[in-house]
Computed example of a mutant assay.
Amino acid sequence: MPSRRAVLKTAALAAAAGALPNVTSAASMARVTPTDRPLRILILGGTGFTGPFQVAYALARGHQVTLFNRGRRPAPEWAGHVEQLQGDRDTGDLRALEGREWDVCIDNPTTLPAWVRDVGHVLRGRIGHYIFVSSISVYADSGPAGITEDAPLAAYAGVDPLAETQASLAADMAALFGPLKAASEAEARRQFGARVAIVRPGFIVGPRDETDRFTWWPLRVADGGEMLVPGDGRDPVQCIDGRDLGEWIVRLAETRTSGVFNATGPDYRLGTDALVHGLHAVTGGPIRFTHVPADFLAEQGIAFGADLPIWFPADHRFAGFGQVDNRRAIESGLRFRPLATTVSDLLAWHRGLPDDRRRTVRAGMSRARETALLQAWHARAAPSRIDAGTS
């Protein structure tokens, strides 16, 4: 049985975790069962999208957390509960990590193999477990359904992946992101051997998502009226709540789990119709969904995955992003909160943003563009419709 002092300490950490802005509630963290085997966890990054979820959950579980980053996004509310070290992996400044030891290192922001190499030089033999957060973009072919972790990876076609920089990556993100993530995975194995877990998330969504790729959908449903639904409504979509991802990564650390995992959800097939109806169940209001075929949208110059974010037609080269095999991650403890919870919390977070940010949706087509597409489609042929909540 834990001592009274340990119980009070864990309660204080749970309260601190729940106080983190735009992360989670103190009540939800208080329900987390503390571990009887606290770890020393080093998180590289930790102040971006999913990192704060890892911090909140790790604190609630009673772990000792150290963050290493450039300090450009300070989090003073963590003072006294999280050790914060500063450095710059882009310049190779890892002095703050030298001579230190941790049970596990969670590497969140890395796309450059050189960053993994440099961390390996400093931490090799000083950590027991290394968790590298990669991406499903590592696969050589993203079109087929059911991509498993053993599918071939994208090949790097440059001269030397270890010579790539943030500048070179930014100059050709589309061509380099996947191959450099794959090369970073290989470097992780070279540096840390079998004590590596590689996590390949799909589209990460929920509160704190600054991309708005998923957010566009519930905002559009909430706006009501006639809404364009691409395809026949059966194309699958996949995504994962950043909190589910962050908490599961901490559990991988606790169990010292190694291997490679596709981390996306849900744990059932979610088609486009089910998605928009699920969103409407949360937002309510009058709306009418109109199916528009993918070939017509292509004729109109629609950019799949951008104008209609996270969705791809069945014959698209990224269609596999909606139907990745995630069974291995589920078997390793990945769990998903209900879609309605993700959407409700996301909209609540979005309503709390500054007015100018809230009015600027960073993904998806404009309402004017959608209206023009619907008018063009109606002019060509009468589409099939799904009526929902017209009262």
Rank of each mutant, 00 (worst) to 15 (best):
E187H: 02
S134K: 00
E185G: 06
I147A: 09
E187L: 10
V138W: 10
P230N: 01
L228A: 10
D118V: 01
F132Y: 13
K181C: 05
H121N: 13
F203C: 09
I131E: 00
E187G: 05
D107T: 06
P218F: 03
G206R: 00
G128E: 11
L123F: 10
D141N: 15
R213N: 07
G206T: 00
I106Y: 09
A170F: 05
D212S: 03
G125I: 12
V196Q: 13
P207Y: 07
I198P: 07
A197M: 06
G146K: 01
A188C: 14
G178E: 07
A114C: 09
P144V: 03
G231Y: 01
G146N: 12
S168T: 15
V122P: 05
F177D: 02
D150E: 15
R190D: 13
W217V: 00
V196K: 13
Y156F: 15
A114Y: 01
G178R: 06
V138T: 11
E185T: 06
T148D: 11
G178P: 12
Y139H: 07
P152R: 08
D223T: 06
V119I: 13
Y156Q: 07
P109K: 11
I127V: 08
A197D: 04
G193V: 01
G146S: 09
E149W: 09
T215Y: 14
P218L: 04
A186E: 13
P144C: 07
Y130N: 02
D150M: 08
L112K: 10
V229S: 02
F192P: 03
R220G: 03
P161S: 12
P152V: 01
A155E: 15
N108V: 14
Y156L: 11
R124F: 06
I147D: 13
V116L: 10
C105P: 09
A186S: 11
A183F: 13
I131T: 09
V104E: 01
D141V: 03
D141P: 04
D209C: 11
Y139V: 05
P230E: 05
T111K: 11
Y139D: 02
H121D: 15
S134Q: 00
D141Y: 08
G158Y: 12
A186V: 04
A151N: 07
A151T: 02
T110E: 11
R200T: 10
G231P: 03
V229W: 08
L153W: 14
R190S: 12
V133S: 04
Y156T: 11
A174L: 15
E185Y: 05
V116A: 14
A163W: 03
H121G: 11
V196H: 01
G202A: 01
E187K: 06
L180F: 12
R117F: 04
